[in-house]
Amino acid sequence: MSEVAAAGAQVEEPARPVRIVLAKVGLDGHDRGVKVVARALRDAGFEIIYTGLRQTPQMVVEAALQEDAQVIGLSLHSGAHMTLFPAVVEELRRRRAEDIVVFGGGIVPEDDIVELKKQGVAEIFTPGAPLQSIIDWLRNRFPAR
């Protein structure tokens, strides 16, 4: 057997970048925060698919499935997080895609964070959270292969 075959011929692969769908769910037009996060994650090497405003949970999940994203990031400042965040998790379950990680950002009280985590939201970042903490959390969750 030649060295070539012994080397276990494999086409060299570029590392798969983590793909993240970022979305604003519900009736909330405050998109400055999500754009800042999108920009920071881009600069940290993530592929961000930004879907824009006024998304329903169904639209967000459909986008994540079509885009083969590993993560969904939700941004919400309207106070409807206790309804909309779990609705996204539930829709993922319905589509048999529970492996997709959901995290959120917005004005979310401590008690709600505890409850949301119980319901399957992996992490919540509140106002003032350093961008680096979001990046670190994602890198920790998805170590480079």
Binding site: P17, R39, G45, F46, E47, Y50
Partner: peptide, 9 residues
């Protein structure tokens, strides 16, 4: 960075 913002959707 290799990152991207894909916003066509």
């Amino acid at each position: 960075s290799g990152g991207a913002i894909l916003g066509d959707r």
